[in-house]
Design a protein around this nucleic acid. Structure first.
Length: 561
DNA sequence: GTGCTCG
């Protein structure tokens, strides 16, 4: 297999653009570490290699339809068979693992690669395997313990799937006692007023702490607290600053989200000395991280294309071979296919993380059938965690569908909301950049503090808008999909879907900007005759979140492609 | 349709 072949396989079935990636592929070949087995350092070969042969099946679901647990049986037989296959695979692995555990020497610490995690209780059981007397009572103890864990998970609606999933964490203090988290970080947490973990943090943190190399984690969570859920184990895992170059990379779909994550990391690691970096401008960063620079950095937060730009320099201005953790935030967006899709960009970055112990974690609020299928097919040792029902909107948001007739009706209804007196801040979502501009010009003369954000504005403008929206100077912010994901504004009171969302997933992301951290929020969605095709799937989401919806909408026929 | 390098 030559480098091009290899690279094509690594591209996860993404369209292979020879012109664009030829250079990468060639470099990949020359960068192969000397004297190492090909299959070893590039564990990602398996990871992507299967993709080209097992390209995910056409999805049986209707376009944009959310796959609910209850509806899963509706999906085609193909999917079912696939799930069964995966289950069999998991069982085999489970058996293998328990075999390893049985032959392990009782007094040796069981930290080998075969056993990913053993609780204290498990260790006791191993130690006493030959002493039958206490064996039974210990078994009972273990059973009780498992029941307790199950109860905690049920209480917080934590669902896990995969083998060797560690127990949930109940207090942040356990991080210090169990994982030697820097005491200063714990103090920073307390200073920020964070005293107990949210459900996603309870499960994702211990999971990331126990994970082996080559294990991947998929985390689905509609609640806030995701950023902390991966930042804490990351800092805990890196222990302290080291001059090895970047050891962790976090990829976000928008610059705004990257900035937010970066700031969270700074706040969290204050006083510990970790060198956290965000690429503000790739051309500047080229000097900063280039071959001549010393390797005094630890964590990188960035959008994908900036990383790629640096990797494409000759010689590469960024070295990711010491990366131990690769975290993909809002991964469903980043897995989206498109003409110049995020997916190929991710493939390039995965490739560049060529270290021997890369762990990967994917975080997202929603799970498109695409992402899940892809993960199941391509990742070994996949563990998934999801909180609550998958693909549902948060329950703290009061949701409403409003028929406005036609385009003109939207403006009338919008003015109506404003005149009736609304509680700012309000986030208004539109379909395109042009429509964002138009609506802005309509509203700017109304005497309300309104501004607009989209990717065509300069970075300076974007930063300013976000800042003044956070500080309350802007009451109404018109935006495109740019702000749909992950951005955490404190106390957005109303999300207005001025243009109908393009899918149920998009809808869930948009309204997730309100009702955060347990606060009450409201979401109003305008619809016209033209929006009928997607009305049903979104009405379903709203209904499932417990908000009233007219029955006739649910009765609409499913759309088929 | 949206968002992701540089100049």
């Amino acid at each position: 297999m030559d480098a091009f072949d290899l690279f094509r396989k690594l591209g996860a079935g993404a369209k292979f653009d020879l012109k664009r990636f030829g250079q990468d592929a060639a470099r990949f070949k020359t960068h192969k570490p000397k004297g190492t087995d090909v299959s070893d350092p590039f564990s990602s070969i398996d990871y992507f290699g299967k993709a080209s042969t097992n390209k995910p099946q056409e999805d049986d679901c209707e376009d944009g339809e959310v796959l609910n647990e209850s509806e899963e049986s509706d999906a085609g037989d193909k999917r079912k068979r696939k799930h069964e296959q995966t289950d069999v695979k998991t069982n085999v692995k489970k058996r293998k693992k328990s075999k390893v555990a049985n032959i392990a020497e009782p007094n040796k610490p069981s930290g080998g690669e075969g056993i990913s995690w053993t609780s204290d209780l498990d260790k006791k059981i191993l130690n006493l395997q030959n002493g039958d007397k206490e064996k039974n009572s210990l078994k009972r103890l273990k059973h009780l313990h498992q029941e307790k864990v199950n109860r905690i998970r049920a209480q917080h609606r934590i669902n896990v799937h995969g083998c060797d999933v560690p127990d949930p964490l109940c207090t942040f203090e356990e991080l210090q006692s169990e994982y030697r988290l820097h005491s200063r970080i714990l103090q920073n947490l307390n200073d920020a007023g964070l005293d107990s973990p949210t459900p996603i943090q309870m499960q994702a943190i211990p999971l990331m702490m126990h994970v082996n190399k080559d294990t991947s984690i998929l985390t689905l969570c509609d609640c806030s607290g995701k950023t902390l859920a991966f930042c804490l184990p990351l800092l805990s895992h890196l222990q302290q600053p080291a001059n090895l170059g970047f050891r962790a990379v976090i990829i976000s779909p928008t610059r705004e989200l990257a900035t937010q994550t970066y700031r969270e990391l700074l706040r969290l690691s204050d006083g510990v000395g970790f060198r956290v970096h965000i690429i503000d401008k790739a051309s500047l960063a080229a000097k900063k991280y280039g071959p001549q620079s010393s390797k005094k950095y630890d964590i990188l937060v960035s959008t994908p294309n900036r990383v790629i730009y640096l990797l494409n320099q000759d010689p590469p201005a960024l070295d990711l071979c010491s990366v131990e953790w690769l975290i993909v935030d809002e991964s469903d967006k980043l897995f989206e296919e498109g003409k110049t899709g995020f997916r190929e960009q991710l493939a390039t970055i995965f490739l560049a993380c060529s270290g021997p112990k890369v762990r990967r974690a994917f975080f997202s609020a929603t799970c498109t059938p695409d992402v899940e299928q892809w993960c199941r097919l391509n990742l070994d040792n996949l563990v998934t965690v999801n909180i609550g029902h998958r693909n549902t909107a948060v329950e703290t948001v009061e949701q409403e569908l409003l028929f406005v007739g036609n385009e003109d009706g939207k403006l009338v209804a919008m003015r109506n909301i404003i005149n009736k007196g609304f509680l700012p801040p309000m986030l208004v979502f539109v379909q395109s950049i042009d429509r964002a501009r138009e609506l802005f010009h309509e509203l700017v003369y109304e005497g309300i503090n309104v501004d607009v954000i989209h990717a065509d504005r300069t970075q300076q403008q974007r930063d300013n808008v976000v800042k003044s929206f956070r500080s309350g100077h802007i009451w109404v912010l018109i935006c495109t999909a740019l702000l749909a994901r992950g951005i955490d504004f404190k106390g957005v009171n109303l999300v207005l879907n001025y243009d109908f969302p393009t899918s149920a997933v998009e809808y869930i992301h948009r309204i997730g900007r309100t009702g955060r951290a347990g606060h009450h929020g409201r979401a109003v969605t305008f619809f016209t005759e033209n929006d009928k095709p997607l009305l049903r799937s979104i009405a379903n989401v709203i209904k499932q979140a417990g908000c009233p919806v007219p029955d006739y909408m649910i009765g609409f026929k499913k759309i088929h492609r």
